[in-house]
Each structure stands twice: as structure tokens, then as C-alpha cells.
């Protein structure tokens, strides 16, 4: 069985207010064929929001790697590329 990909969506207040709330709908948008290979969780503040130089909220962590200014479509593209690598 394939290794699963973990998507952690920051639900700290900064990310949540600045567009992160809608990211929790990610599951509804995942393509059917790899829905089973992805684990989606919310997580507490990743503390990336404290410094503007680290990018813009909302932040998510995909298999340990941080994505800034995350949108549902960018997350899905990242998941697709990770699946191809595996």
C-alpha cells in the first residue's frame, strides 16, 4: 500500500481569519482517485504568521513542508506532485 500524504491545515486565529477557514473544505474538492491517500487534519498555530518574511497566511503543512498563502487548488496541485514522486 502507498504511503499516505498528511495535510495539516493551520486553524490558529491568524490563518483562520485570513482565508484559512475555507481550506477546511479541502476534502470536498479532492479528486476521487487519491482521496484515500490523503489525511487531512487541523492543527494549532504553526507560528509562521509571526514574521511577515516567512510569507502570508494561511499556512498549511504538507508532509512536513510548509506552504504559505495556501489555497485549495494549490494544495491539490502539491498533493498531485507528491503522489507522482511516490
Amino acid at each position: 500500500m502507498k504511503e499516505k500524504i498528511t495535510v495539516e491545515i493551520c486553524t490558529g486565529t491568524h490563518c483562520f481569519v485570513m482565508g484559512g477557514s475555507d481550506l477546511m473544505l479541502l476534502e470536498d474538492y479532492l479528486p476521487e482517485d487519491f482521496r484515500e491517500n490523503v489525511i487531512i487534519t487541523g492543527c494549532n498555530c504553526l507560528e509562521y504568521c509571526e514574521n511577515r518574511s516567512r510569507g502570508k497566511a494561511p499556512f498549511v503543512r504538507i508532509d512536513g513542508e510548509i506552504m504559505e498563502n495556501a489555497t485549495i487548488s494549490r494544495i491539490i496541485r502539491k498533493i498531485e506532485s507528491l503522489i507522482l514522486q511516490k
Partner: peptide
């Protein structure tokens, strides 16, 4: 509610904590 949320962000108040 939106203003409240942005106020929390401005004052660095993380509701979850």
C-alpha cells in the same frame, strides 16, 4: 464578527490558546 477576527489578529490573540 469579521472585525472581531481581524482585531484578534492585530493583537496577536490566538483563540485556540
Amino acid at each position: 464578527i469579521e472585525e472581531l477576527g481581524a482585531l484578534f489578529v492585530a493583537l496577536k490573540i490566538d483563540v485556540q490558546k
